[in-house]
């Protein structure tokens, strides 16, 4: 592929969402700063949000850094623990049957309800935020990796049996490689959830006012009705989530590129 071509294809992918973004911002601007041009607004205009973001750029950036650190720690824990649990599930039906309902429990329990417990066990601070992020992002890793390890084509298993493959060979040469694309898909979902988890964690089990993440800013500014700053923090969270999701997707594509099935 020629570089010019690639650029053209890149533009084709980037232009439509960019155009939509501009349109939404324009409508938002018209609605809030032209048509409903009153001193008090439920929704701040894009100009005001941009100004608030610029004024608080340093604060937002350091908060985003802390949130990102917590999210990445939670995500890394999920990847590690999720793979181990999935591996256990794939090796023993009984293990899977016994533990699966509790894995579902992790997925369905309202995190706000257990947040006091987490604070009780881990105290306020970074570690509790990481725990919330971990709990929220664990499930997709477990289910996807377990599916990848177990949902192997029956004929392939027969093929390995036919050549007297050991359990170890079936695992190493068939199940694990088969699970890679599943794990990558799970990791993509999980990475986004880890960011959400970090922000929810900061709101429910976060830090004091000396060190704070985006969740704290969102919590604080909403209490004080500083909607411009609140919007700026929400946008920063969205950007952070998007950035981490995009990075994980990229790494996943690079890892699992040749796994595409036929």
């Amino acid at each position: 592929m020629r570089p010019g071509n690639r650029l053209a294809i890149g533009m084709e992918r980037v232009l439509p969402p960019l155009a939509l973004f501009s349109l939404v911002v324009l409508l938002w601007y018209l609605a809030t700063e032209v048509i409903w041009d009153r001193p008090y607004r439920l929704i701040p205009g894009p100009g005001q949000v941009a100004r608030a973001a610029a004024e608080n750029a340093g604060r937002l950036a350091s908060a985003a850094g802390l949130t990102a650190a917590a999210a990445l720690c939670g995500f890394a824990l999920s990847l590690t623990a999720g793979c181990l649990v999935a591996f256990g599930f794939s090796q023993s039906r009984i293990l899977q049957r016994s533990f699966y309902p509790y894995a579902v429990f992790l997925q369905t329990v309202p995190i706000v309800a257990v947040a006091p417990l987490i604070v009780f066990w881990f105290d306020y601070g970074f570690q509790s935020v990481v725990v919330v992020s971990f709990i929220l992002s664990l499930f997709p890793i477990i289910t996807n990796a377990a599916t990848g390890l177990t949902a192997v084509d029956a004929n392939l298993l027969e093929l390995f049996e036919l050549y007297n493959a050991s359990r170890w060979q079936v695992l190493w040469k068939l199940r694990l490689p088969h699970a890679v694309p599943y794990l990558v898909a799970g990791a993509r979902i999980s990475s986004g959830l880890a960011v959400i988890g970090a922000i929810v964690g900061e709101i429910s089990a976060g830090y004091g006012s000396e060190r704070f993440g985006l969740g704290y800013i969102i919590f604080q500014t909403s209490g004080q009705l500083k909607t411009e700053e609140l919007f700026a923090a929400v946008l920063a969270s969205a950007l952070l989530g998007f950035g981490i999701f995009a990075a994980v997707s990229r790494i996943g594509e690079a890892l699992a590129g040749r796994w595409q099935s036929y």
């Binding site: 093929l159 068939l174 490689p177 890679v180 796994w259």
Partner: peptide
Amino acid sequence: FQEATLLAW
């Protein structure tokens, strides 16, 4: 087998 049953990776 009926299908080629190759390892995709």
